[in-house]
């Protein structure tokens, strides 16, 4: 290691320690609190109580199902749109970029108010948690769009499309045999980010009165504090697993079908 790099590391270590403490202390405190059984007793009682609650599993499965539906709907809309943008209308990229960041500037409360005023539809959509998929697709849009954009930018979409067409392939063959297999890393990244967002989303579900995982954590927090702490750690683990997946696929440590 060169002297310069040593110096850089020397300056970085205290900073890393401070940031590490900033993240670790609340988590350790939450962990300790989740193990508190009253007085000076510590044990897994809160965890045992949590896993024995049927409504918890129902809310967890609901959130997970909504995450999968969000991934599916989001990708079905965005893969063709972003692919087409790269292939035929690259000049519209600034417009796409702008639209993709709109969810950051419109507060969820405004979004949900607008949504309930605007969207009507069949009962299976508006009267069930499926309704949440609509705002969730919007919430996940910046991440899904960016992941796909980066993935497609790494490919020479136009040349690959022309090569496939020149060899006789139609659009179906092109999309399913060439484009999607080369976007696996981007698609996995988009999917894992969506899972992380949906599993932790509270505002929409709470306002629209659906009992998702985040809403359930909030409810438990009002009734059994140590169990809420245990659930919080559990949701952290889910998010972290998703993020680790994103990092691993993004760095190319997981090699998919030979495509980097």
């Amino acid at each position: 290691m060169s002297a310069g790099r040593r110096r850089a590391w020397g300056g970085g270590i205290p900073f890393l320690i401070v940031v590490g403490l900033y993240f670790a202390v609340p988590l350790i405190a939450t962990g300790l609190f989740s193990l508190w059984e009253g007085g000076s007793r510590y044990g897994p009682a809160a965890y045992i109580a949590v896993v024995q609650q049927a409504p918890l599993w129902a809310s967890l499965f609901l959130s997970f199902r909504l995450a999968l539906e969000t991934i599916l709907v989001g990708l079905v809309i965005l893969v063709p749109a972003v692919f087409w943008m790269h292939l035929r209308t690259p000049r519209l990229k600034p417009v796409f970029d702008f639209i993709s960041v709109l969810p950051f500037v419109v507060p969820p409360v405004v979004l949900v108010a607008g949504m309930t005023a605007l969207y009507t539809g069949p009962d299976w959509l508006v009267s069930t948690p499926n309704y949440l998929v609509i705002p969730y697709v919007i919430l996940a849009l910046p991440y899904t769009y960016r992941a796909l954009d980066v993935g497609l930018r790494a490919l020479d979409v136009r040349t690959l499309t022309e090569a496939a067409q020149n060899l006789g392939a139609g659009w179906g063959m092109l999309v399913f045999r060439v484009v999607i297999p080369n976007l696996t890393t981007a698609l996995i990244g988009a999917a894992l980010l969506t899972i992380a967002i949906v599993m932790g989303e509270f505002t929409f579900a709470n306002i629209l009165l659906f009992n998702t995982f985040a809403v359930y954590i909030n409810y438990i927090g009002g009734t059994a504090a140590t169990q809420a702490a245990a659930l919080t750690l559990l949701s952290f683990v889910i998010t972290w697993l998703a993020m680790t997946g994103v990092l691993l696929t993004g760095r190319g440590q997981v090699q998919i079908g030979g495509a980097r």
Binding site: L155, D156, T159, L160, E162, A163, A164, Q165, N166, L167, G168, A169, G170, R177, V178, P181, N182, T184, I256, G257, G258, A259, R260
Partner: peptide, 18 residues
């Protein structure tokens, strides 16, 4: 293009990476 039965080699690398 797909109906023309013509083989083309492009300037840019055009192999399917997967």
């Amino acid at each position: 293009p797909r109906q023309r039965q013509m083989g083309m080699v492009f300037q840019a690398y055009s192999l399917f990476p997967n």
